[in-house]
Nucleic acid binder design. Sequence first.
DNA 1: ATGACTCTCACCCGTTTGAGGGAAATGACG
DNA 2: CGTCATTTCCCTCAAACGGGTGAGAGTCAT
Lengths: 224, 224
Amino acid sequence: MSSESDFNAPVRRKPVPEKKIRVLVVDDHPPMRIGLVALIKSQPGMDVIAEASDGEEAIEVYDDVLPDIVLMDLRMPGMGGVEAILAIRKKHPDARVIVVSTYDMDEDIHRAMQSGAKSYLLKDMPIEEIASTIQGVYEGDTPLPRSVQERLMERAQRQQLTERERDVLEALIKGRSNKEIASSLCIAEDTVKSHLKTLFTKLHVRDRTGAAIEAIRHGIIHLK
Amino acid sequence: MSSESDFNAPVRRKPVPEKKIRVLVVDDHPPMRIGLVALIKSQPGMDVIAEASDGEEAIEVYDDVLPDIVLMDLRMPGMGGVEAILAIRKKHPDARVIVVSTYDMDEDIHRAMQSGAKSYLLKDMPIEEIASTIQGVYEGDTPLPRSVQERLMERAQRQQLTERERDVLEALIKGRSNKEIASSLCIAEDTVKSHLKTLFTKLHVRDRTGAAIEAIRHGIIHLK
DNA sequence: ATGACTCTCACCCGTTTGAGGGAAATGACG
DNA sequence: CGTCATTTCCCTCAAACGGGTGAGAGTCAT
């Protein structure tokens, strides 16, 4: 697959000016944005053609510059990364977005890949891995770091929650009692208990406190 | 206070080559480190003289280069920022460390300031604020961003926990029942309940689940 | 249209938890 | 020395919680 091992191609090193990969960087943290931009510009075959600091801006800018690759942060104020990816890929189904996140929670990873991201990088990864992933995605691959793959496998092994179970879990993490959850969801308290029972089983915990912790730990429900 | 409004000083613009502020940057995320370095180097009066990617390295490097200012990430694998600050300030009580963190949890802020940090910045702050804070700390001030100050105030209003209460809270967040907490701390179950009662009061919650959530939200106990 | 899944609700039963009260021992601080 | 905070322990009681079981109504795909 890789263009490097094409033995039949004629050898020509210098002659081709080689078009640079045009990257759009999206991150709400100024120093991180600066770092990603510098990192990419330091790579010979890549260039940053635009930046954005949130989801809405990313969508606008994408339409303007039509980059080859988008490097997108996941958690941003206002429109998050997932919504931005969905919006971009709705208009441009062939858009190639790579998520660059601080968090390695399996639900974050899953949501990102589900929404159409081509890869998922962590900010603690070495610059070589970031660069090679950009290169790989540009060439049509979907190179997913091993550690991220493993997280994704973990999630796959966990039974996934139904919509209603997520509702209950979310209410639970707001600190509500069964009775309060019931009235906030307009169902009977027994129904809440019923959902909780399956939640405990699926999350491999025995009580609501354990469920809350697991939900937060895996990023199933975001705090705040 | 600011050296700009010194009307009595003789005006001399160019002549002074002005010694640059020598900064040590500590962060485990490569792109963030690159960004912080680039940010500082872009400021005329500052320069990065060394970098480190974790606490241990930071301590070593500090001894070597004796920087004017340390820009330190808080959450790092191995030795975290707080321990690094304590270690550095033990040997060099006049060390000036500025924390640069992703998180604005009040406990994180408090622990950092407690350990001797001169200021606490968030990574979503504009580069001007980061630069001016470095300048301010270099000049002997402790310029704390308003939003960070407010967080500190919030924490101050909350009653602080005793060591034993933190033990119970930590065990609680491991998903343990009262009985299990009791045996893990070698105390009676009733004692656990007693601590929980005061915990609920101090955290303004009614049950263990609420306590777990609040503890995580405020960074009192770190998940994982 | 039969099975699979979800959501809903109900009942029983035992355990855990939280609210109320009180009290003794320790060490720190003035 | 007395006072305060902290830690430890005890008791009772009612409410909340969790396990087990079952079951009707709805959607959906095969």
